[in-house]
């Protein structure tokens, strides 16, 4: 490990150009930037900022008139149960369902990317690339506006609520990213494993499900969790389309408190804090698993 490699980590004996090592595979665990960043925040930092956000308008208010209105802290305290049980729980529900949808579709798409049938392979590749590289908000708008608000099947009219469309709209980019995780994990298994299986008369399908996937399924978990945390943080964008999740309910709560400007920072600060409280443990766990799985093959 500590051995110096002339030309790379130590001076070379000649000045002849050396062949540099090939760049590492596209799917190194280091790709989990978001979780690494989030997990590196000391847990007390957001609480400190939140406390400051809470105290500052109160002090500003204390110098003013104070006509018996509740302080921002009192107002927030009153709304908190509502915001959490109605708003945040719904947000989490949307994110979980989006992840479910994205994972199921993404696994199919990822397997499609390594299909022996060229048509499926090429189509899966392009679907993945397009949805992976499109702005989420645009995808969300397209789904929201192009899907009907109800469908009629055999004379039965089934309404499609907005949140279902939100799940599909957000699920598309998740699907594409999961597809890449699946493809990358499969590609990370040495091709010699395929050959060994082939020489033992395994079919392609048997090889994939019994030999290749069991080896790389663990490697998919940290990047999958990373995407879940990213998705949860992004879920409030569905509020733009009127889904009654935490951001919309917070706005409504402030309106109910007569739009007092000193409420803005504590209320939205609180929303930020809940997201942190929810995503932070996920990020820590992601990094733990990433380290653990990196040790074993």
């Amino acid at each position: 490990m500590s051995r110096m490699i002339p030309g790379l980590t130590a001076p070379a004996t000649t000045d002849m150009p050396v062949l540099l090592p090939a760049p590492t595979a596209r799917h190194t665990p280091r790709a989990l930037n978001f979780s690494h960043w989030l997990a590196s925040i000391p847990p007390w930092v957001p609480f400190l900022i939140f406390t400051a956000a809470l105290l500052w308008p109160m002090m500003a208010l204390a110098q003013g008139t104070g006509e018996g209105k509740p302080t921002p802290l009192e107002a927030l305290w009153r709304w908190m149960p509502f915001l959490i049980t109605r708003g945040f729980v719904f947000t989490v529900l949307i994110s979980v369902m989006t992840m479910l949808f994205g994972t199921v579709m993404g696994v199919f798409l990822g397997l499609g990317q390594i299909s022996p049938v060229k048509g499926i392979r090429v189509a899966s590749y392009w679907i993945t690339q397009i949805f992976r590289n499109s702005p989420w908000l645009v995808l969300l708008f397209i789904v929201m506006l192009s899907f009907p608000f109800q469908v009629t099947v055999f004379g039965v009219t089934i309404p499609i609520p907005d949140w279902t469309k939100a799940v599909i709209g957000l699920g598309l980019p998740i699907m594409a990213n999961i597809s890449e995780i699946v493809r990358g994990a499969i590609a990370s298994v040495p091709s010699a494993q395929w050959e060994a299986a082939e020489s033992l008369a395994f079919t392609r399908r048997q090889t994939l499900y019994q030999i290749i996937l069991p080896q790389c399924i663990k490697r998919m978990i940290p990047p999958w969790m990373n995407w879940y945390a990213i998705l949860t943080m992004a879920t409030p964008i569905v509020s733009i389309l009127g889904v009654e999740e935490i951001l919309n309910l917070t706005r409504q709560a402030i309106e109910a408190e007569n739009n007092r400007p000193e409420l803005l920072v504590p209320f939205y600060g609180f929303v930020l804090l809940i997201f942190f409280v929810y995503c932070y443990p996920i990020a820590r766990l992601t990094i733990r698993l990433e380290r653990k799985f990196a040790l074993k093959l």
Partner: peptide, 10 residues
């Protein structure tokens, strides 16, 4: 049988 054994590691 291959040079690199190629056993199934799992």
């Amino acid at each position: 049988v291959f040079q690199q054994y190629n056993l199934f590691p799992h």
